[in-house]
Amino acid sequence: MSNEYSIRFIGGILSVASGVLLFFTHLFGLIGSTELITIFSKSIVLFAHLMMVFVFIAIYESELVRKGLVTMVGMIFSVFGTMLVSAIVYVEIAGASGVEMEHVFKAPVASTIFLNGPLMFVFGMILFGIQLIRSDSSSRLAGLLLVLGTIVFATGSIVIDAEIIFSVIGSALTGSGFVQLGLMLKR
């Protein structure tokens, strides 16, 4: 088994897994928000985001996306954004577990991470998705799903009253994009 095949195959499995986990975790959030449900769902989101770091690299290294400066910038922003979002989710898990976290996000470095991590992730996902749409491969639909899902999901942070609905719809679209990309990577 060559290195490229290993990266593609494992990246494909992780892409499918992260897409499915993201959707079902946000769907699970509709059930309620007890401490146990919150900790469980945030833990799954954390693992899904950690998997995505590898997925972005596997997609970049595949022939599914055009190589170039925009793709590279999209991948870098997606990877770093995902890492920072993972840090945020980790702190949220601690807060849901009863640890006093109110001062953490107010600290200068943490507040910068809290503000910029999701923005980096959204910007990177949109760039990466656009490059998938522009590619000459069968990954156009996956790119469209990533872009639309990211925009819908991000809209939830603006429309606070309907955030959970936007999260579920956005995660369904984004998750579908990751599943499609994962199936293409496993070929």
Rank of each mutant, 00 (worst) to 15 (best):
M101I: 13
F121A: 08
T174A: 15
T34K: 06
S33K: 03
R140E: 15
A110H: 04
K42H: 12
G143S: 07
S62C: 07
F105P: 04
Q131E: 15
H26R: 13
M125N: 10
L64W: 00
I93N: 04
R187S: 15
A142K: 09
A58H: 00
L119H: 12
A107K: 09
V53T: 07
L127S: 03
A96M: 07
M72T: 15
F153N: 00
N3R: 13
V45H: 07
G81W: 06
I165Q: 00
V53S: 01
F9Q: 09
M120R: 02
G12Y: 01
R140D: 10
G149E: 02
I164Q: 02
E92S: 11
L64G: 03
F178W: 00
G19M: 02
F28L: 14
V91Y: 08
E92M: 10
L27N: 07
I165R: 00
T38H: 00
I57S: 07
A110M: 14
A48D: 03
A87I: 14
P108C: 10
S97W: 08
Y60R: 12
F114A: 11
R187F: 06
E35S: 15
N116R: 14
L69N: 12
G124R: 02
E92D: 14
G143V: 03
I160C: 04
D136T: 11
S111P: 05
A58F: 00
G175P: 04
A87C: 10
L27F: 05
I151N: 04
T150G: 10
A58N: 00
H49C: 02
Y5I: 11
S135F: 02
L64Q: 03
I10F: 05
S157R: 08
L46I: 00
F9W: 11
F28T: 11
F54L: 00
V91I: 12
G129Q: 02
L84Q: 13
S41I: 11
V109K: 09
S86Y: 04
A96T: 06
M52W: 13
S43R: 01
T34Q: 05
F9I: 08
V91G: 09
V16H: 04
G12H: 01
S15N: 09
L46A: 03
L84Y: 15
M125D: 07
R66M: 08
T150I: 06
A107N: 12
R187D: 15
E63M: 12
F77A: 06
S18N: 11
F40R: 05
G170W: 06
V147A: 04
V85G: 08
G11C: 06
G117F: 04
E63D: 15
G129T: 01
H49T: 00
T71E: 08
R66L: 12
I158P: 05
I151M: 04
G182S: 06
L173V: 03
I164T: 08
S171D: 02
V104A: 14
G156F: 00
L115A: 09
S2W: 01
P118V: 01
V79K: 02
Y90Q: 10
M1Y: 07
I126N: 02
G74L: 02
S2R: 11
E63W: 11
S139T: 13
G98V: 05
S62F: 03
I31M: 13
V16T: 04
L132N: 04
H103M: 12
E102R: 14
L148W: 11
A162R: 01
V168M: 04
L84R: 10
M125A: 12
I93A: 05
S139E: 10
S43Q: 02
I113L: 14
G143P: 05
N3L: 15
